[in-house]
Computed example of a mutant assay.
Amino acid sequence: MLIHPWDAAHDPDEWRAWLSRHDFGQLAVNGLPGEPPWVQPLHFRYEAEPGPYGQVLTHLARPNPLWRALEENPTVLLSVVDDYAYVPGPWAAPEGSPPEHGTPTSFYAAVQLRCTAHVVDDPAEKAELLNRQVAHFQPEGGTAPVAPGEAPFGRLLAGLRGVRLDVTDVRAKFKYANHKPEPVQDAIVAGLTTRAARGDAEAATHQLRRRPASSV
Rank of each mutant, 00 (worst) to 15 (best):
K173E: 03
D7G: 03
V189D: 03
Q207N: 06
Y46S: 06
V29R: 01
F24Y: 14
A144T: 09
H179M: 10
R198K: 15
P90W: 04
R161E: 01
R198I: 14
N131F: 04
A85Q: 03
A187S: 13
L130H: 00
L2R: 15
R21M: 08
E14C: 05
A203D: 00
D122F: 04
G54T: 01
L66V: 02
K175C: 02
P212M: 06
V111T: 08
E71A: 12
R161S: 05
E150W: 01
H22M: 14
N178S: 13
V170M: 09
Q133W: 01
W18T: 06
R16K: 15
V119P: 04
S215E: 14
A92N: 06
A117V: 09
V87C: 01
G102E: 04
H22L: 12
N178V: 10
A17C: 14
T75S: 14
T103A: 07
V163T: 02
A177E: 04
P90M: 00
L66Q: 09
A177G: 01
R209A: 12
F137V: 11
A135M: 14
L42K: 02
V119W: 04
K175I: 01
V80N: 00
R198F: 14
A127T: 00
V87W: 05
V120A: 00
G191R: 01
V39G: 14
